[in-house]
């Protein structure tokens, strides 16, 4: 049995007056890939952004319920959001490298967190992160060129390298491949498969094929409710709910 990493209990979320999540209960297992699927506006991205409290930045957004990371409530008043985010990293839909050099993109956060000094320690840390994001070979000769000059797929892997350089436990991915072409997508998927040895990965995806290919578990959301959650194989072959069946077979929406 897998150990539980993130445990969500009866999570409700409002944007101003409208309720976007109606009481979600779900457990994400450690060192596995969980895919969140569902039609647009079903609340899957919203849920993901709750996990490292990126929703705090949206005015009028409030939540009820609990999100436990390793048993601790991340919405407890004494929790420091900044520290939380070093434990729960995030990769965004559109690659967003900083307008700095490739090296600086990766070194930025470790330097702020004091994870390495500036000399060879940092070089090593940067190299490791880039290697683990399997982009080292492509960029090792141009570490000091702008990160924004890379191709889309490379940029996204650079963003992943940037995230793992902070050594989080959980990585959230918000449709990481939706802005990429099929070849770049394949590379990222390969990378995710590698990364799940060390990290708990929770990803939102629009593509059911992608969920079926790389996730261990899949959660199907609809209209702010969690409809079904289980092993990916089960969800895609014998879903329990009719709604899930309709969605994955394309008879829907």
């Amino acid at each position: 049995m897998n150990t539980s990493k993130v445990n969500i209990k009866d999570l409700k979320l409002w944007y101003g007056e409208s309720e976007a999540l109606h009481g979600i209960d779900i457990e994400f297992s450690e060192k596995r890939v969980t895919a969140l699927i569902g039609p647009s506006g079903c609340g899957k991205s919203t849920l993901l952004r709750c996990l490292n409290r990126m929703n705090d930045r949206i005015p009028g957004c409030r939540i009820e319920g609990q999100i436990l990371l390793d048993g601790d409530d991340i919405y407890a008043p004494e929790v420091d959001v900044v520290q939380l985010r070093t434990h729960v990293g995030m990769v965004f839909q559109k690659p967003n490298p900083f307008p700095k050099s490739i090296y600086e993109n990766v070194a930025y956060a470790p330097r702020i967190h004091g994870l390495a000094g500036s000399g060879s320690d940092m070089d090593e840390l940067v190299e490791t992160a880039l290697r683990r994001a399997s982009i080292w070979k492509e960029v090792k000769d141009k570490l000091h060129t702008p990160g924004t000059a890379l191709s889309g797929g490379q940029q996204q892997r650079l963003c992943i390298a940037r995230t793992i350089a902070v050594q989080p436990n959980v990585i959230l991915m918000d449709e990481p491949c939706s802005a990429l072409d099929p070849i770049a997508t394949a590379k990222i998927e390969e990378l995710i498969d590698e990364l799940k040895r060390e990290f708990t990965i929770i990803m939102v995806t629009h593509s059911m094929q992608q969920a079926a290919r790389i996730s261990d578990q899949t959660a199907f959301f609809y209209m702010g409710d969690l409809i079904e959650f289980g092993e990916t194989g089960t969800i895609f072959t014998q879903p329990e709910k009719q709604q899930t069946e309709d969605y994955i077979t394309g008879r829907f929406g």
């Binding site: 539980s4 436990l68 990371l69 390793d70 048993g71 601790d72 929790v79 520290q83």
Partner: peptide
């Protein structure tokens, strides 16, 4: 719940000063 390696509220002692 399982054995959490983190001290409460995600603050490790050696980082406390820097964080302050």
């Amino acid at each position: 719940m399982n054995n959490s390696t983190q001290p409460n509220n995600f603050i490790s002692d050696e980082k406390k000063l820097r964080q302050k």
